[in-house]
């Protein structure tokens, strides 16, 4: 569905992303993991043509066979939202403060389709329900009236409004509590099963995607150091950096291991 070949991102003479290949299929959950400065966010922005003017992307990004990289800004605007949707870390700025959530969602549909007012409202409410929010009240709320988790859910509902084929989620749970982020991940998982949307998940925290990701790309200083099936990387990492990254994650012992340890201490 989404196919990236030899993508590079430059800033003046500096290469920020080295040639990168990536295949994302329908219904697949691909996690792009790396630390700050690894180029994971730049890659995700390049896909939607969101790089700032001083950054230059080269190579090839194809969405269902259509080349994206050389599209003009109006063409990109047409693609974003309809075919590729984004959810970002900073849920606070996902909505304009003094306009109701419903109005902003409505605007999004109106910009891209010619549905009637009632159809639009119906679609908004349905999508708010899909993200497990009380649809009517949230539709009429202002952003500041919602909690962080609720706002991020509303942002996801907005992203899904036009049934995009690819959802790019850039650290969408980093600013949230661990329990809230867990429920957001479960929500997206459910939506993926229902709709078959392809997900590109950008994160610095491998723990988040251990249970959900099908495919994993590990990036370091602009380069992909390891990629493959998620479980094979988790259990048999080959690149030293991946090994280091995995061992750096604080872990809880399993119940069984802890009991074993306690027994050893006691005897």
């Amino acid at each position: 569905m989404l196919s990236i070949r030899g993508l590079t991102v430059h800033h003046q003479l500096q290469t920020l992303v080295h040639p990168l290949d990536l295949q994302l299929h329908r219904g697949e959950w691909l996690a792009l993991a790396g630390e700050s400065g690894s180029g994971k966010t730049l890659t995700s922005l390049a896909i939607g043509g969101l790089l700032s003017a001083d950054l230059h992307a080269h190579g090839s990004i194809q969405l269902e066979g259509k080349e994206l990289l050389h599209l003009s800004e109006p063409e990109f605007r047409h693609i974003r939202g309809r075919e590729i949707a984004y959810v970002f870390q900073d849920y606070q700025s996902a909505f304009t403060p003094f306009i109701t959530i419903g109005k902003q969602m409505d605007e999004m549909i109106r910009a891209h389709t010619s549905l009637s007012r009632q159809q639009r409202q119906h679609s908004c409410l349905a999508h708010l329900e899909q993200v497990e929010l009380p649809a009517k009240p949230v539709y009429n709320s202002y952003p500041f009236e919602l909690s962080g988790g609720q706002l991020q859910r509303a942002a996801i509902a907005t992203a899904l409004l036009l049934s995009p084929k690819v959802l790019i989620a850039d650290e969408p749970t980093t600013a949230l509590d661990s329990l809230t982020s867990r429920s957001i991940i479960q929500l997206i998982q459910r939506i993926q099963q229902e709709t078959g949307i392809a997900i590109l998940w950008i994160t610095h925290d491998l723990r988040q995607v251990q249970r959900t990701a099908d495919t994993l790309l590990i990036m370091k200083s602009g380069q992909v150091v390891e990629s493959g099936k998620s479980h094979s990387i988790f259990f048999h990492p080959t690149h030293p950096y991946t090994v280091q990254l995995l061992s750096s994650i604080p872990k809880l012992p399993s119940r069984y291991r802890l009991e074993l340890q306690n027994k050893q201490v006691n005897t």
């Binding site: 329990l179 867990r182 723990r207 251990q210 872990k251 399993s254 119940r255 802890l258």
Partner: peptide
């Protein structure tokens, strides 16, 4: 710490455990 998995854990602790137990 070595008593992490006790039956009498508060439900909130239990839900945190669930999140962090990968």
């Amino acid at each position: 710490s070595n008593d992490l998995y006790h039956e009498e854990r508060h439900e909130y602790t239990a839900s945190l455990l669930d999140v962090f137990l990968a």
